[in-house]
Design a protein around this nucleic acid. Structure first.
Lengths: 340, 340
DNA sequence: CGTTTTTGTTGACTCGAGTAGATCGCGCTG
DNA sequence: CAGCGCGATCTACTCGAGTCAACAAAAACG
């Protein structure tokens, strides 16, 4: 009648290993970590044996307490179900794992309150660094984190705040090139579908679009503001369709919005790119398989993620923060008029 | 010449609070945790004051070491950039956060090796539970985790392994209903686009499709096997198009694959649902904004996530594992022939 | 052969918090 | 007024691992 065999879980500690190998606990540590003191080869072997037979695994929590480092990175995104942030999270996770770090993910659901909760939560959990993708260009949270000794990297920022580490795509010039490409297909009236940007900052994509229009001597273009998701793009599409005189091309600030926009066009029976040419931003997998395939500005997600991880774990506490900007690539598919 | 003001970070501990409030460290703990012993109201107030003025935050790592619980949940998905898993991760994260847990995310990139690495990594980090979305129905890993005292929940399994906690949609009957719905639109020849399932198990969706065909006295249907992503669906579509005599309707095992399949149909100039009717599985946001909008079987993601969190944190160690199956809902849009 | 240096090992303290067990002081009862 | 009970508080040990000062034994040097 006794025992529940399965639940008997011995929990092997350093002490057990030391006892079995006939050495002190210090030596076990030295062997496991390869330092800071030498251990005679023969002893090392005995300890290794003991570790193997007992199946000892060092307690990461204890190490974290002693060392003051959890080897965990936190990442906060506004919406993980957005394909762009999902890809970014994946890339960050992979880069972090390669360095032996795990990644805590927090979805802030576009809410500043939730974002703050996650950040403070992460700080309490002593993460070694935080990746923050925020709609906001808020300094207060970040400096609070840094004050608590947590290196923070802003990803995908739309402004250039120089007092904190920041990594993002080169918005302005890439967007200008994208719009100029549309112009190259003969379009003169090119609208912008722009996601809401919090704060009174000017989004780089909008700026690039303006620059391109100015460069081609075109008149002021129309702007459709909407939320940064498929529903927003759809909504913008409906407003676009309601126009008496419609622009012949559209530059859209994300693939997700573009997909929604396309749906609206399809519903109305318009053809892309014949009736309306479309170019979007991000370069997610989604853009490749929509109909028609979207021409888009592809962000170098992997490079940005790797640079982010490097900025967090490979940077001394006293190095000044850096802003790193990455060039994007124009991916030309059907929706702009290429490849038909 | 001294100091670098910003990097002076005092690190307040329980001891500092105790000193300032003029009490012992034990009392501080009692106040912070509301127990296990009483503290006189006046003293409580003093301690609270001290906590506030010093800005004390309990060290979660230390607590985790002492309590043997990190209040962290792990989640392993094959691919976070799949909209379905992204939504699932979001729902789990939210449910976990409401209970005061954080979520470590691991992307296994469809690789069993990476999956194992994540699981063992999570185990070392003493997570309190793991959500595992695996293409495989592998027991060994799971029982190893359980052996280390980590409650594990299989999400989105396609078989019924009763020796471990499992949560998933009701695949068979939902799929049968979906296919029957297509039949209701007059289709007799209904193909299946099926993602690769590892192991020699029969996918519930395939089983439901077979059942429906049998029920309507139809002949054997065609099956297109492909990977579980947009590219796979596209590839299946190409093979579908190459057929001399094409089925008039298709049931596809995920929205992602359906999007790729649609692209292939569009490329060939086929109309949906007039030439080919399509019904898919999952119910992600993506399905709503594709063209045409996809009729799909919506999984109750939020309920499943909540049930999963409950299974992990609200379950005693010795309770037997349960398999929980959740009903899905048919979402009828344009692609099947409804709503035109 | 005696002394210095090197090498290997250990005991003991530390990180920050939870909590059992001992202690203190106060009020009530007989 | 002694004795008891009880609530409030403190002391001290614990979780598991990192690492330094101290020490012993062996190697190198004169």
């Amino acid at each position: 009648m006794p025992d529940l065999s399965a639940s008997a879980r011995p929990v092997i500690t350093r002490k057990d290993v030391a006892r079995l190998a006939g050495v002190s606990t210090a030596v076990v540590s030295y062997v496991v970590n390869g330092g800071p003191k030498n251990v005679a080869p023969a002893t090392q072997e005995r300890v290794r044996q003991a570790i193997a037979t007992l199946g000892y695994r060092p307690n990461v929590t204890a190490r974290a307490l002693k060392m003051g480092s959890s080897r965990i990175l936190g990442m906060v995104v506004p919406k993980i179900s957005s394909p762009f942030f999902a890809s970014l999270a994946k890339a960050v996770e992979q880069a972090a794992e390669e360095e032996g770090y795990a990644m805590l993910l927090g979805d802030s659901r576009d809410s500043l309150t939730v974002e703050r909760r996650h950040l403070s939560n992460f700080a309490d959990r002593q993460v070694d660094g935080v990746f923050l993708c925020s709609v906001l260009n808020h300094r207060p949270e970040v400096s609070e984190l840094e004050g608590r000794g947590i290196r923070t990297v802003l990803l995908n920022f739309s402004e250039y705040p120089l007092e904190v580490d920041a990594i993002g795509p080169e918005f302005v010039d890439s967007s200008r090139r994208a719009v100029e490409h549309l112009a190259g297909h003969g379009h003169r009236d090119i609208a912008l579908v722009q996601g809401f940007v919090t704060g009174n900052t000017l989004d780089g994509r909008e700026f690039g679009w303006r620059e391109a229009l100015k460069g081609m001597g075109a008149s002021e273009g129309r702007i459709f503001r909407c939320s940064f998701d498929r529903a927003g793009g759809y909504d913008a599409g409906r407003r676009f369709l309601a126009l008496a005189e419609r622009p012949t091309a559209v530059f859209i600030t994300s693939d997700e919005q573009a997909v929604g926009f396309l749906r609206a066009l399809h519903e109305a029976g318009l053809r892309v790119p014949e009736d309306v040419a479309v170019m979007s931003f991000d370069g997610s997998e989604e853009s490749e398989f929509s109909w028609p395939p979207l021409s888009t500005v592809r962000q170098p997600i992997q490079q940005m993620a790797e640079a982010g991880v490097r900025a967090i774990i490979g940077t001394g506490r006293d190095e000044p923060p850096r802003t790193q900007v990455f060039d994007c690539e124009l991916v030309l598919r059907r929706s702009c008029g290429c490849d038909t």
